[in-house]
Amino acid sequence: MNVKEWIKTLTFYEILLGMKATLSHLLKYRPITMQYPHEKKSLPSNYRGMLALLRYDDGTEKCVGCDLCEAACPSRVIRVVSAEVPGEPTKRYSKEYYMDMTRCLFCGLCVKACPVDALGMTQEFEWAVYDKRQLHLNKEQLLAIGDRAYPVREKRLEFQHPNVAYFNVGFKNIPEKDIQ
């Protein structure tokens, strides 16, 4: 045993070395635990939270009641009852739209399946309830979620692209388009 080692033993060098990270935290204190719900984490933009039904900028519902979300859903969350819009023959909409969120996997397949982007996944996740039945959402509830989660709305489909002549428009409501 040489002098160097003797000194290390006397000064508890190894212990200090091992405790280096611990001891440095003793000096530089930074808390890791997030004080939820007083503090909230920022979520990534593609976070798959609560589902919502969206509207166009003129306030009309985007959903055309095509049932494709129902077909895409792996856990049978969605039930769509589609019908003709009263007073606007040949226009299709979802008369009733239900989501049983107790079953939802938040896989996002319904959002992918939607041909008109009427479904969106929001950043909401605080949906703990005392009664599971409250998670059986109807169309109004889903639209309300969409309204608060997506304040910026898209233009109607036929105004988005010049070659969409019209899409799901009622009789005599085929829009005049100013497209060159």
Partner: peptide, 11 residues
Amino acid sequence: HPLDCPVCDQG
């Protein structure tokens, strides 16, 4: 042909 298959009953 309009690509309105989602609202078409033949879809």
